[in-house]
Amino acid sequence: MEPLPNDEDRRDIAASLDGDERSFARLVARYEGTVASQMWRFSRDESELESLTQEVFVEAYFSLPGYKAKAPFLHWLRRIATRVGYRFWKHQARERDRRQTLDTCRADFETSTKPKVPSEAGERLFGMLELLPPKDRLVLTLLYFEELDTREIGERLGWSRSLVKVRAFRARKKLKTMLEDEGLGGIGYARSTT
């Protein structure tokens, strides 16, 4: 069973519900770094990152009466963040030119070797996952970037564990096929070890 929200959060949530702005400001200050880290997996544009993070807290504020305090506040916040990020991707997917994404990904592979620092790796992985449809991309983002297991992903998305397993398996296979079809069969790790 998940632990309940801590006393500090509980006090600030209760006061926020009574309309105390300073209490909600404390909750924002406490969690904005964590939420921003999560939203960085949804967009690598700093201005988008800011507006997505902002949207998470605004949505949290207006959903606060529905928070049941059966799990830590951060878990609840993370679920909202996932919803906001997914909505952003769906909106973006309607406007995005798939071919352009693939070309950008190809350029990344051709110009760079094995990523050496986390930001390069993050950029590369983000670009690869961007090739997938939003639902597949979401499962692999939670799996790869947040290192959640299938049970945790299921809880976050409201899916069954078996659905997460099937979706993750298919998404990985799809990604691999796409990369191989485009002749992007390696990331650099295998080459560097031989």
């Binding site: 400001a25 770094g33 921003a36 902002q54 986390p118 992985l125 983000f126 691999k176």
Partner: peptide
């Protein structure tokens, strides 16, 4: 390729997001 992806993800997870102030 999937093994390489896992390795890439392990490194990517260590990346910190830019600091922002949305309050």
């Amino acid at each position: 390729l999937l093994h390489e992806l896992d390795q890439l993800a392990a490194l990517a997870r260590r990346e910190a997001a830019p600091e922002i102030d949305v309050l």
